[in-house]
């Protein structure tokens, strides 16, 4: 039913003052699906969204949004897309409900404003000026502004950055509902769990290039199939643990106090790990046998250095 992709990006390049933000990116968004664009800070996610929304000229490459050129055909596209920017976009003196009602008034068949405000938990601050809203409330207002015009395609740039758990779940629910109702969603995030939870397809980008893509479960398959994770006190002697394990196993401390054992994870290996823990006086806070998560894939692909 949806043969033509909603967004088609081929060989996109964008440089700022000599610095390359997007470096030959290829990306397709299937219509009616949620596509998660995952990448570390500075990977080029926001630049890509801004080019799709018609804010910036690409330096090279071809971008088609709903089959159109986002710059040359901006006037035809704007009513059909919804955009949530990372920051701002609202008159500092405008009240939350007032601004949402205004964006609704610019569209032909907007959603009713009040239920949307309630749904996103903004009911209590409808009369509060934007500049006095908390960061999380500003985020939710920006999300509401992106969807109130009943767009076909929504760009959400880090919609849950800085949200508390309740607000994050309200946002997730809304994104799921968008998908159910047939809206195409591009979601950028650096939270793996979010991408895994919400996306039909995930594209991992790093340094302006796509380095992996596919449905989350496919990305998580392949490579180290099984792993055993446990948490304990930081700085355990993983070398001695490794000696106790069968050959071809690995044991690493991923972050202080978080350990991962990979290899042929079977009951015997589990017993080996727990008896090693007993010998070393370690009571793991948690111990799980799991398949690869998107976070593992992400860290394997993009490296662990902070940047």
């Amino acid at each position: 039913m949806h043969s033509e992709p909603a967004v088609k990006i081929a060989g996109l390049v964008k440089r700022y003052a000599g610095k390359t933000a997007v470096d030959g990116l290829d990306l397709r968004l299937a219509a009616g699906q949620v596509t998660g664009v995952l990448g570390p800070n500075g990977a080029g996610k926001t630049t890509t969204v801004e080019i799709c929304a018609g804010f910036r000229h690409p330096d090279a490459g071809d971008v088609r949004v709903l089959g159109r050129d986002p710059l040359a055909e901006a006037a035809a596209l704007r009513p059909r897309i919804g955009v949530m920017l990372q920051q701002g976009g609202v008159y500092p003196g405008a009240r939350a409900a007032e601004m949402l009602r205004h964006i609704a008034a610019l569209h032909a068949h907007p959603l009713p404003v009040e239920p949307l405000i309630e749904r996103l938990g903004l009911g209590s601050c409808g009369r509060t000026p934007y500049r006095r809203l908390s960061g999380g409330q500003q985020q939710r207002l920006a999300l509401a502004m992106a969807v109130v015009g009943r767009p076909e395609l929504v760009f959400l740039d880090e919609p849950t950055a800085g949200l508390d758990p309740q607000a994050r779940h309200a946002t997730w629910e809304l994104i799921r509902q968008l998908r159910t109702d047939g809206v195409t969603v591009l979601l950028t995030t650096h939270h793996m769990a979010e991408a895994e939870e919400l996306s039909d397809e995930v594209a991992i980008i790093d340094a302006g290039r796509r380095i992996a893509s596919g449905p989350p479960e496919e990305l998580c398959r392949g490579g180290a199939e099984n792993s055993l994770r446990f948490t304990g006190r930081p700085g355990l002697d993983v070398v001695s643990l490794l000696k106790a394990l069968p050959r071809q196993s690995t044991a690493v401390e991923l972050t202080p106090g978080a350990y991962r054992v990979t290899g042929d994870v079977d009951p015997q290996l589990l017993a080996t790990v727990t008896s090693w823990c007993a010998q070393n006086g370690v009571l793991p806070h948690s111990l799980t046998v799991e398949r690869r998560t998107l976070e593992d894939v992400f860290l394997e692909l993009t490296g662990k250095e902070l940047r």
Partner: peptide, 29 residues
């Protein structure tokens, strides 16, 4: 179905009127 797409721009006079009213309120406030 709440979010089912029904995209479209409001008529231009309505958009301009809404925008002018908002801008005026912001200045007066």
């Amino acid at each position: 179905s709440t979010f089912a797409p029904a995209a479209g721009a409001a008529p231009l006079p309505r958009m301009i009127r809404a925008q002018a009213a908002l801008e005026t309120r912001m200045l007066l406030r």
